[in-house]
């Protein structure tokens, strides 16, 4: 029995990723005296978007597997809005004594913990209450996303203006304004979460067969699902803190990955999703910065393309 290793595909994707990265790093450097500054800044950005690509790709694939569908991703479920909401709450309630505390990474960790608790609670509620109805889950996710978005805006309006300015700096990160100071922490979280999950890749393979069969094959379903959802929340925090919410990035990366790697093996899928994500994002950065001259933000392009694709997916699945 042969098991395709996809070595050639990986090599090709790796080559493309490196090529694009080099193009981004060294293309159009301008005057010679700016080289040092430009290159180090661009290198930082490359690392940051690699972290985003990895966390969004891996979390989307895992989320799709444990919910047995090919439409839902954490972004579509409004998880990044939940992150913004949590961040707003933290700053709203904890920062009145002065801004020292929120200037450090401490608020990020508080956000992380609160976010874990909230998201796990919501997931458990949704999936326990509606076993298997994908449409209900999508709808609930969207509603939760909008609700949290609205609540955050509300709190931001009534918040102290000086605190709001801190919040603004923290929250309105985007691909044009990547929150580089958080890169180290966020990268560390992604790495740890990935290592934490790495022993479960085989179990994800079995989970592809659905809950009952996975249990029949000896997978401790509840434990694995809970662990993965916790990891998905961590991944979402890590990517949202860097570039803000990008609702439809996950569905693009996950779909392309599953198309290029037609397999159920997650050791392949997950590593593949990281490469695909890096290629997609670096390509996007090149296009917005060099071709469109920043006239359209990358997140808008991603949500435009991803949104149309999402509608297509929903319509396609509905007919089955």
């Amino acid at each position: 029995m042969r098991r395709k290793s996809f070595a050639k595909t990986f090599a090709l994707l790796g080559f493309i990723a490196l090529g694009l990265a080099a193009l981004y790093l060294f293309g159009g450097l301008g005057a010679r005296e700016n080289w040092g500054y430009n290159i180090s800044r661009r290198a930082d950005i490359l690392v940051a978007i690699s972290i985003v690509a990895g966390s969004v790709g891996v979390s989307s694939i895992i989320f799709q597997t444990i919910t047995s569908n090919r439409i839902l991703t954490p972004g579509i479920m409004g998880l990044d809005n939940l992150y913004l909401f949590t961040q707003t709450i933290i700053i709203y309630f904890f920062s009145s004594g002065g801004s020292e505390m929120i200037s450090g990474g401490l608020d990020f960790f508080l956000t992380l913990i609160l976010m874990l608790a909230l998201s796990l609670g919501i997931y458990l509620y949704i999936f326990k209450a509606n076993s298997g109805d994908v449409f209900f889950v999508v709808l609930t996710g969207l509603v939760f996303g909008i609700a949290f978005g609205g609540l955050s805006s509300f709190m931001q309006v009534i918040i102290d203006p000086s605190e709001f300015s801190i919040l603004e700096g923290r929250m309105f990160a985007s691909f044009n304004k990547i929150n580089l100071p958080m890169m180290g922490v966020s990268g560390l979280i992604v790495l740890l979460a990935f290592l934490w999950l790495s022993s479960d890749f085989d179990k994800f393979d079995a989970l592809t067969l659905g809950r009952n069969m996975a249990i029949s094959l000896g997978v401790e379903y509840d434990k694995v699902v809970l662990k993965s959802l916790a990891a998905v929340s961590l991944f979402t925090c890590a990517s949202t803190v860097l570039v803000g919410p990008v609702t439809f990035l996950g569905i693009i990366i996950a779909s392309i990955t599953r198309f290029i790697f037609p397999t159920y093996r997650h050791s392949v899928l997950l590593s593949g999703s990281i490469l695909v994500g890096i290629i997609a994002l670096v390509f996007g950065m090149l296009a917005t910065e060099r071709v469109l001259q920043f006239s359209v933000p990358l997140s808008v392009i991603i949500n435009f393309v991803g949104g149309i694709y999402f509608i297509y997916l929903v319509l396609k699945v509905k007919r089955v």
Binding site: T208, L209, G210, N212, Y264
Partner: peptide, 20 residues
């Protein structure tokens, strides 16, 4: 109703029986 939409070959499905 153990049907699922996963794209798995028969051989791979049967091989899942060895998973435990």
């Amino acid at each position: 109703n153990s049907h699922n939409s996963a794209r798995i070959s028969v051989e791979d499905l049967v091989a899942f029986g060895r998973f435990p």
